[in-house]
C-alpha cells in the first residue's frame, strides 16, 4: 500500500507526562498505520492512553518521542500554524462532550470549519443542509444546542467534523453520553458516511456497541498497542 492511501501513520510514538517529578508514559512506543477509508476503534479501559493517542494522531498534542505522518506527510515537528491549517483541511473531530458553541445554531456549529476555511456563506449553508438531511437533522438547523437532545447534539458534532470533507475523522468516546438508541443512530450515521463518502473514522472508545461495529479494533493497554484486529473488509 502506497503512502497516498495511508491516512495516518505513527512510528515509535511516546507521550510522557511528568506528575510531581514522576514520569508517566501515557503512550508507549506505538507504531500504527491506518489506511484511508478505515473504520477503526482504539479500544481500551479508561486511562489506557487511547485519548492521548488520538490527540497525537490529531496533532492536538506533541509526542515526546517518535513520529507522526498524516497522509504521508511528516507532521512531527511542524509549527502550530501549519498544524492548525492541517487540522482545518484534513481532520475532523468529534468529542465526548459534543463541544458545540452555545452561541451558534446547529447549522452554524456544523458550518464552523467551513467558516474557518472562509467558504462562501451560501455554499457552506447548502452543504450543511445537505448533510443535515443525510444524518436526520432536518428542521433543526436554527436550534441552539441547548434545544437539542444529546444524540442530536452529537450528530451536529459529527456533521461539523465531516462537512469539510476531511480525510479523517477522530472521535473520542462519541457515544459515551448517549443512550443505546441514540448511540445506534449515531453509529449508523458514521458508518454511512464512512461507506458512502469514504471518510476514515478513528474512535477512542470502550463502548462494546461501537467496537462491535468497528471494522478494525486496536486494543490499547497501558499506552501500548496490545492487539490489532481487523474484522471486516474495508469499504473505501
Amino acid at each position: 500500500m502506497s503512502d497516498k492511501t495511508i491516512a495516518v501513520k505513527t512510528e515509535n510514538l511516546w507521550k510522557t507526562y511528568e506528575h510531581d517529578g514522576i514520569e508517566v508514559h501515557a503512550v508507549r512506543d506505538v507504531s500504527l498505520t491506518i489506511n484511508s477509508g478505515e473504520f477503526v476503534a482504539l479500544a481500551g479501559p479508561s486511562g489506557s492512553g487511547k485519548t492521548t493517542l488520538l490527540n497525537l494522531i490529531g496533532t492536538l498534542t506533541r509526542s515526546t518521542q517518535g513520529k507522526v505522518w498524516i497522509a504521508g506527510r511528516d507532521v512531527t515537528n511542524e509549527p502550530e500554524g501549519v498544524l492548525a491549517r492541517l487540522r482545518l483541511q484534513s481532520i475532523g473531530f468529534v468529542f465526548q462532550a459534543y463541544n458545540l458553541l452555545p452561541i451558534l445554531t446547529a447549522a452554524e456549529n456544523a458550518e464552523l470549519s467551513l467558516l474557518l476555511q472562509g467558504m462562501d456563506p451560501a455554499e457552506r449553508r447548502q452543504r450543511v443542509l445537505d448533510l443535515f438531511g443525510r444524518i436526520g437533522l432536518n428542521g433543526l438547523e436554527d436550534r441552539k444546542p441547548n434545544k437539542l437532545s444529546g444524540g442530536q447534539q452529537q450528530r451536529v458534532a459529527v456533521a461539523r467534523a465531516v462537512v469539510g470533507e476531511p480525510a479523517m475523522v477522530l472521535a473520542d468516546e462519541p457515544t459515551a453520553n448517549l443512550d443505546s438508541h441514540a448511540s445506534d443512530e449515531l453509529l449508523d450515521v458514521m458508518e454511512e458516511l464512512n461507506r458512502d463518502l469514504g471518510v476514515t473514522f478513528v474512535f477512542a472508545t470502550h463502548d462494546p456497541r461501537l467496537m462491535e461495529r468497528a471494522h478494525r479494533i486496536v486494543h490499547i493497554v497501558d499506552g501500548a498497542v496490545a492487539s490489532d484486529e481487523v474484522k471486516t473488509v474495508q469499504n473505501a
Binding site: 500554524g81 492548525a84 491549517r85 487540522r87 473531530f93 462532550a97 463541544n99 464552523l112 470549519s113
Partner: peptide, 16 residues
C-alpha cells in the same frame, strides 16, 4: 476556555 480549545482543535489559528 473549552470553546477556544475547540476552535483551536478545529483548526483556528491562535491569531484567529
Amino acid at each position: 476556555r473549552r470553546e477556544f480549545a475547540l476552535l483551536l482543535a478545529l483548526g483556528a489559528s491562535p491569531w484567529g
